[in-house]
Design a protein around this nucleic acid. Structure first.
Lengths: 274, 274
DNA sequence: TCATTTGAGTGAACGCCGTTAACTATCGCA
DNA sequence: TGCGATAGTTAACGGCGTTCACTCAAATGA
């Protein structure tokens, strides 16, 4: 564990330079533009030299994908840490940071969240490993939901239904990578993450173009709906929830002024409740 | 408009053969395996001959993507027509058909719903055209939702919020491709289609592997939740909805026996209400 | 019927690409 | 000082999209 030798320093610097070149090509020309020859050309090298550092182009792309997962996870963790102690605020901030990164980095998003191309299969195959960057990223949203659940359980589908649909060993991979979690929390995470992913992927992949001009407005609307659901008290406590009778609390039912003018994100939702 | 000449028949047959070869390569080896040389080789031709039929490989892939959109749309329309007159049953059947096709055809799904690669940019650019296969496909879910809304308005976010978030010209592309639609219907479609897309894309793209083993169980659970929301009467009619106080009607709150054993799809949801 | 035009297809070539093999020079260490 | 590991080179193979010049058969028109 001593200081890395000179050789090791040079080697890791070259690895970083290769990855930087790969990412630059990814950004400018899409994943198809990432080629060993172009990377080597930009570095003033020849292509076969890269084989001293990566066994194939596919392995290089997989390593780049792992780095991108880590970069995005660190970004979201930093956003969470800056959002204060309120779990709902943390979720809102992380969701917005996720969308912002994805929109600003469509090529990177496509690489790690798009279709597994032959250049990505080796990466996907390792995803069952809990230490895998993909699994570590996926679990980053769970903690705020768990905190929220422990403080004040939110409205979920009935536990019997959840256990019926998600029981047995169906959540075993999640347990392996994140430990035991209440099935309600697991469902809230899976449902919320799926909606978040769907919204952002459809925007980045231009699946909204034929229908919607400003995907951000729809994104903010869905954020409000999901957090409203997370803030609604569960029906088990009482037959008449305190803040209305539906899934939409008073703050979004129009009884009070709308929380924002429509331009830009509205104020944090958790703060608007108290 | 008379009978196509012999030349035209031969030409369209060759076009079809080229597309068939392209799709075969797509299925067996992914989108990267689709190459003019391989297609021509399988046809007993040489690669430059294909340029008599398509101006580039990218154009060929774009044409294939258009065909896939149409194939999937026809499949969903057929599923809808076989699902009876109940709009909720139609939505359930179409959603299951969409997932089944996507899981059975991951490469095709990746091509039309995945990241826009250089081979797909030309296709995406044309998506604002209402006659574009992508737009025609996207609109296929709107009709059942519109039928349902006209018969019995469902629970939506408050219209003021919807108009604030989706008003102005933000839904202009959707209007161009499908005509005028109530903003509540547009929201229900966008929200529901996004959730459906997110669920299926995450399953097909192996984004669930680190957390869940049976993505179908989660899919069915989310189907139940979404249709429960669609079947809940809107809060504007009365302060106390007839079938409970939350977003989950009695049929999924566990008061009645669960609708299915957990293996395979549950019975149609709309039928279970009456 | 025959000349002409159109269209389909071929072969060679250019410049990319990933990958392998054989070889060389340099660096670090005993 | 010498030796082994390491990082790099050049050359080559096969595959790719694409272009160009060319051939040949089929449709067309006088």
């Amino acid at each position: 564990m001593g200081a890395p030798s000179r050789r090791e320093r040079l080697r890791s610097a070259t690895v970083a330079e290769i990855k930087d070149g790969a990412r630059r090509l990814l950004v400018t020309g899409g994943v198809d533009a990432v080629s060993l020859r172009a990377i080597a050309r930009d570095m003033g090298m020849t292509a076969p030299a890269i084989y001293r550092y990566f066994p194939s182009l596919e392995a290089l792309v997989a390593a780049l994908a792992g780095d991108l997962y880590d970069e995005l996870r660190l970004l979201l963790e930093a956003a969470r840490d800056e959002a204060g102690a309120e779990p709902v605020d943390q979720l809102l901030t992380m969701s917005r940071a996720f969308r912002a990164w994805s929109v600003a980095h469509p090529a990177e998003f496509g690489l790690i969240f798009g279709a597994p191309s032959p250049g990505r299969n080796a990466f996907v195959d390792g995803c069952v490993d809990p230490d895998h960057p993909g699994a570590r990223f996926g679990a980053v949203f769970i903690r705020p939901i768990l905190d929220l659940w422990r403080r004040s359980p939110f409205r979920t589908p009935p536990p019997e239904l959840l256990r019926q649909r998600l029981g047995g060993r169906r959540l075993e991979p999640l347990r392996l990578s994140h430990g035991e979690v209440p099935v309600e929390v697991a469902y809230a995470f899976l449902s919320g993450w799926t909606r978040l992913y769907g919204l952002v992927a459809m925007e980045v992949f231009h699946q909204f173009d034929w229908a919607v001009t400003e995907a951000e407005a729809l994104f903010e609307l869905e954020l409000e709906m999901f957090t409203a659901q997370l803030l609604a008290d569960p029906p088990t406590r009482d037959d008449a929830p305190p803040t209305g009778d539906g899934p939409f609390p008073a703050s979004v039912t129009g009884d009070s002024p709308p929380p924002a003018t429509g331009d830009g994100p509205p104020p944090a939702f958790g703060a608007a409740k108290g």
